[in-house]
């Protein structure tokens, strides 16, 4: 009888420990909020610049495979590349006037995607520290409302 109880106790403790430990076995990164990233980024590129000190845009496709909508809040690059990074939106009205303005974020629908492309959204690199040419590849870190942080490799493409 006592052996049975101890056995049951051991099983209960074992199951409890297992429930705590097994989900963590998949964790490779300390700061990832979830084991599988819902957000992925593809086809990223940055437009080349003329000289330095100016601005340029980064474009890409952001995909959200997760079940919850997310939102791109900010992006960053190494300080040696640009002094500031913002999210901008370009619009052209019926008056044919192009306007660009900073926006607080870009929604990425659940199970959907959003494209940052000429004519719409872009990530703006400001105060570019040195001329960006097609030999360069930049690393951008995108931060999302969910807490996800995605590192993106973006080759520089020639102006044309």
């Amino acid at each position: 009888m006592i052996r049975m109880r101890r056995f049951l106790l051991a099983v209960i403790i074992g199951v409890a420990l297992g429930a705590l430990l097994i989900p963590r076995l998949g964790d490779n990164e300390d700061d990832a909020p979830s084991p599988k990233p819902a957000i992925t980024v593809r086809d990223a590129w940055v437009r080349a610049t003329v000289g330095s000190g100016g601005m340029t845009g980064a474009f890409m496709v952001i995909e959200n495979a997760g079940g919850a909508a997310d939102r791109l809040l900010s992006a960053s690059v190494d300080a040696e590349i640009a002094g500031a990074v913002e999210i901008h939106e370009m619009t052209i009205g019926e008056d044919q006037v192009m306007r660009m303005r900073p926006v607080e974020g870009i929604d990425v629908p659940a199970g959907g995607s959003v494209e940052l492309k000429p004519g719409g959204y872009h990530i703006m690199l400001l105060d570019v520290k040195h001329e960006l040419t097609p030999e360069d590849t930049l690393t951008l870190i995108l931060t999302f409302e969910s807490g996800a942080q995605v590192e993106v490799s973006a080759p520089v493409r020639a102006m044309e």
Partner: peptide, 8 residues
């Protein structure tokens, strides 16, 4: 020239 979209 600092226009990243429409101009280029």
């Amino acid at each position: 020239t600092n226009c990243p979209d429409v101009c280029p």
